[in-house]
Nucleic acid binder design. Structure first.
Length: 203
DNA sequence: AAAAGTAGCAACCGCGTGCCA
DNA sequence: TTGGCACGCGGTTGCTACTTT
């Protein structure tokens, strides 16, 4: 039997248009059949990848923000290289994008970020605790459920310069914050503050 | 200005898993 | 139960653009 030569490499604009059209008609399934039906000289795998990583609606194509970077670093520490799992926490970002970002620069930033977080938890703790409280509340107020589990210093930095007050949120001392931070914020396994006590407390 | 080196990203590849007949 | 198919995932490759020398 004769196998048709499949195209590889960069996608052309007309290929994208054709793929988007056929996916709109057929749905995101049976990629091999879809690839054949479309007339594209591409494998089903290639079509699926192109759709998921580039053509799919609601994708963010811009640069990954500082907050997203912090979240990726935190989640990578939590989950390891489970990029699809991490991507689920970042709406609009693909696992491939996150993976590439990690490999090309976030991997290098991670130790710096950990150091910052460690300092956040050990020095000036009262202020930071308060900031962290605010970060958590703001995060949990995010309409997207995928962000509801956050509760560490992830976005504390970005909030540090904000002047908004949050009523009803406890203001903790350092001593309180060590225990209560975990009870209040870190009941989920997603807590990843890098304070030295965390591993002991979690045992 | 040009060559070499590096970084970033899109795409490919192989393997594991789940589903169904 | 099992074999085949389709899909998803993570690692890897290769191309392009940018930076450095």
């Amino acid at each position: 039997m004769q196998e048709e030569e499949l195209r590889r490499g960069q996608w052309l604009e007309e290929e994208d248009e054709r793929l988007a059209m056929i996916v709109a008609i057929s749905g995101e399934r049976r990629w091999d059949a879809l690839a054949k039906d479309s007339g594209l000289k591409r494998s089903g795998k290639s079509c699926r990848l192109r759709w998921l990583n580039y053509l799919r609606p609601n994708l963010k194509h811009g640069h990954i923000t500082a907050d997203e970077e912090r979240l990726i670093i935190r989640l990578q520490k939590q989950f390891g290289n489970k990029w699809s799992k991490i991507a689920k926490q970042l709406p609009g970002r693909t696992d491939n994008e996150i993976k590439n970002s990690w490999r090309s620069h976030l991997r290098k930033k991670a130790p710096v970020y950990e150091q910052e977080c460690f300092e956040d938890n050990t020095s000036n703790s009262e202020q930071k605790s308060s900031i962290s409280n605010r970060a958590t509340v703001l995060n949990s107020s995010n309409s997207d459920d995928s962000f509801s589990e956050k509760g560490d210093c992830y976005s504390a930095d970005s909030l540090a310069n904000e002047g908004t007050l949050l009523d009803g949120i406890p203001s903790w001392s350092y001593e309180q914050s060590r225990m209560e931070h975990h009870m209040y914020f870190c009941s989920s396994n997603l807590c990843s503050c890098y304070a030295p006590w965390t591993s002991e407390d979690n045992n």
